[in-house]
Design a protein around this nucleic acid. Structure first.
Length: 197
DNA sequence: AAGTAGATGTTCT
DNA sequence: GAACATCTACTTA
């Protein structure tokens, strides 16, 4: 009797659990691939935000801007940062809570020329190293507000289960509230982070 | 290497 | 008015 070789399902795309709590989803997204109209790369940095906690936009309840955070998980919450940059979040958990994950940095892998044109840069390391840069490189605008992450133009694929990723954690960047929460997550050793951990 | 100014929608005091 | 889940350009060492 021949024993079949053990192998993992490399060709399958494990589903992402958008219904998880924000920190769990933020951790799970490290190593996943995010494409918008075929342009994007590997997620190397995220931050979790939760309505229970004062740094989140959703903390004081829904507003016209934050309505998507109170909608179903697995959709996009897009906001304008400092009136200038478009930033992309993945809504998570069940509706009514207001939780999401900010996509802070990607390792560019798809559509480099498009991203270089949008960013007006050639340096690959700086194409998606920061939430505003990710938004510009991926062409994120208000048109993406509230869209499902499981349908075009979005394409989110979990990291292959057999590839181990070491995830770093630390305090979130650019906030003045809840600075003690270690809700920033990053891929260890990546040169595409917005800042060192 | 480090610090500062300036760009400006949405929300809050 | 002021703060803000930011980035770039420019100055000073």
């Amino acid at each position: 009797m021949v024993v079949a070789p053990y192998y993992t399902a490399m060709t399958d795309h494990p589903c992402i659990d958008f219904g998880a709590a924000a920190p769990a989803l933020a951790h799970a997204l490290i190593g996943a691939t995010l494409l918008v109209d075929g342009v994007g790369g590997v997620i190397v940095e995220t931050e979790a935000y939760d309505g229970d906690e004062p740094a989140a936009h959703s903390h004081r309840g829904p507003t016209p801007r934050t309505a998507a955070m109170f909608g179903p998980p697995g959709h996009a919450y897009v906001y304008r940062s400092y009136g200038i940059h478009w930033c992309l979040n993945f809504v998570c958990r069940e509706s009514g809570h207001g939780a999401g994950v900010l996509i802070r940095a990607l390792q560019p892998t798809h559509g480099l020329d498009t991203m270089r044109a949008r960013r007006g840069l050639t340096d690959e390391r700086l194409l998606c190293a920061g939430p505003g840069r990710v938004g510009q490189a991926l062409g994120i605008t208000a048109a993406h507000y509230g869209l499902s992450l499981c349908e075009a133009p979005f394409d989110v694929r979990a990291a292959p289960a057999d590839v181990p990723v070491q995830v770093l954690t630390g305090p979130r960047i650019g906030i003045s509230q809840a600075q003690d929460l270690p809700w920033r997550f990053g891929l260890a050793g990546s040169r595409y982070l917005s800042r060192r951990f």
